[in-house]
Computed example of a mutant assay.
Amino acid sequence: MTGSCKLSTTQILSAIIVIIIIGAFTAYAYSNANDALKDSVKQGMKSTAGVMATQINASDIAKFKPGDDTSPAYLATTRQLRNMRSMNDHILNAYILKVSPDRTITFLVDDLAEYDPQGSAKIGEVSTAPDKLEIFSALSAPTTSREPYTTKYGSFISAYAPIDDSNVGSSGNTYAVLAIDMAADDYNNYTSRGILIVLTGIVSMIIAVGAIFWFGRRDEKKSE
């Protein structure tokens, strides 16, 4: 009885150690995989927003004012944005934001205006996205949301890029910020593919623990 009890204790301790080791490696691999996927998505979004921003002529949008949402010039810009973002099926919306000297962020163009007037932002509407720091930073270089966020329009993760005002006759300061949105669900689904690593880790734990008890039981029978 003493030998059997001692063997059982050894088996339990060995199983615990194996679970801890495999669990730690699994958690580490899962975290790294998810971080890599998130970085990949964000880099892709930043690149897309950056390229789109270079195609916007600041002089075309500088004249927009509240009430111009149905003007031919405004609708032409919304179509340009839709055409550019249509190359990526994951981008739901493209729009242009204006940062005022008092750091108020307002919508200047929303590419959904023509087809969804009720679900699109109006010219001059204040942005309620929590990405203010990212939008301010986008006055200098492309940025992305740190994490998905929710507004009255839905849940998204966004990328932002500066629209240069050199076309308005200046020396190249930022006039506005172009933004694109990806649905938060799409982002979360894409960046959670590391679940396979978790499943592999769980299976490895089951096999390793099973082996410990099987070999332990076999040795116990031999010693009887």
Score class of each variant (00 low, 15 high):
105 I>M: 01
140 S>R: 14
116 D>L: 04
9 T>I: 12
139 L>F: 00
158 S>T: 05
47 S>E: 10
144 T>M: 05
185 D>F: 03
57 N>E: 12
46 K>W: 06
129 A>E: 08
82 R>L: 09
198 V>I: 13
13 L>W: 13
175 Y>Q: 02
186 D>M: 01
195 I>Y: 15
179 A>N: 03
100 S>D: 14
207 I>T: 06
108 L>R: 04
200 T>P: 01
196 L>N: 12
198 V>C: 02
132 K>F: 03
194 G>V: 01
164 D>Q: 07
52 M>F: 09
172 G>P: 15
123 I>N: 02
71 S>P: 11
39 D>P: 10
86 S>V: 11
50 G>H: 02
33 A>K: 08
105 I>Q: 02
3 G>D: 15
169 G>M: 01
201 G>C: 03
183 A>F: 10
144 T>F: 02
168 V>K: 15
42 K>L: 08
66 P>D: 00
49 A>G: 04
10 T>Q: 15
14 S>L: 15
173 N>R: 13
127 S>F: 07
18 V>E: 07
173 N>W: 08
85 R>G: 01
11 Q>A: 15
98 K>N: 12
61 I>N: 07
44 G>K: 05
13 L>K: 13
19 I>Y: 10
76 A>R: 04
17 I>S: 10
137 S>G: 08
79 R>T: 12
102 D>N: 10
114 E>A: 14
103 R>N: 15
200 T>A: 12
205 M>I: 15
10 T>I: 14
79 R>G: 14
128 T>R: 11
90 H>S: 13
12 I>A: 11
7 L>I: 08
38 K>F: 00
8 S>L: 13
220 E>C: 10
56 I>C: 02
129 A>N: 06
179 A>Y: 09
206 I>Y: 14
122 K>N: 09
68 D>G: 01
174 T>Y: 11
189 N>P: 08
122 K>W: 05
9 T>F: 09
34 N>P: 10
42 K>E: 09
73 A>W: 00
53 A>R: 04
175 Y>R: 07
94 A>Q: 07
